[in-house]
Amino acid sequence: MHSIEIRSLSKKFGNACVLNNISLQIKQNEIFGFLGPNGAGKSTTMMILATLIKPTSGTVIVNGFDTVYESAKVREHIGYVQQEITVDEYLTGRENLLLQARLNHIPNSLIDNRINDVLALIELENKQDDLVTTYSGGMRKRLDIGGSLLHKPQVIFLDEPTVGLDIQTRRKIWEYIKKIRNNLNTSIFLSTHYMEEADELCDRIAIVDHGTIKVIDTPTKLKNNFGNEILRIGIETDVDVKKLTSKINSIEKYVEKINFDNKILTVFSTNCEKIIPIILKSFLDLKIKINSVSMSKPTLDDVFIKYTGQNLNLENSGYNMKKEYRKLKNIRT
């Protein structure tokens, strides 16, 4: 059984089509990333999965239950951490968790233990009796994530879990997310617009834009599909290129193509990290002096830009340049 199954899901708000015929399946214990620019439909998808809004058409099955017809059943087994920080500032950390535990109908006899476990996981034991007003942004987020774990949900939705946090805090939260997956054996559906986050955490990624899924694959495959890794080596003097290339070609497992032009040797490879030591060693053997070495690797950024188009900033916020221009013109005349 899949944790989440989305079948040709569409959502319209008035005339605006926010999601257009999305289908995907998320396996058990998988971290699945929904990657897309602002306004791509990430939060809408998540709200539909979390039973907050109803789809215009299509079916969503979470944990074997339909989100429209069996929403009460779905709600028993999901945790949802919204983009905004939703903990109550005027309560203490522990009181927030207590409230969340009660909202999720955890039996009274279990509540204390569950809260202690969660506090240990999010490392807030020392601050548990302080008002949340004294917490930093990162601590609030951790508390928010902790609150969604109390009832041991089978699926957790994380809507942009690290937006607005510094890189140390972000890494800390990544750590927790991995721990949650391993300790609680949950599936995690995560939306983000940070490439490195998707790269670091996700088993699979869907790149979404304008309400459609552009591609679904593992981060590694996405990067490899997009292009090979490129190694450039600058060489001092003219050398016996044939001898060199034949030597490099012998590592055929990773090398795809070699170019030599203008004292620069370019190697297209599927795994530069593996071939660099071997190539450098062959240079040493042939006593060739190296001037410079540079390696470029396609990142998820490249993949993302490729699938969502270059002009991200203008398109993603629903800003239509032509329309705005026309408006301006009307004002002037």
Binding site: A72, R75, E76, Y80, Q82, T86, G147
Partner: peptide
Amino acid sequence: RYGFINKVLISPI
């Protein structure tokens, strides 16, 4: 505004 209600709405309450 700050999503607390949403948090309550997705609980079985």
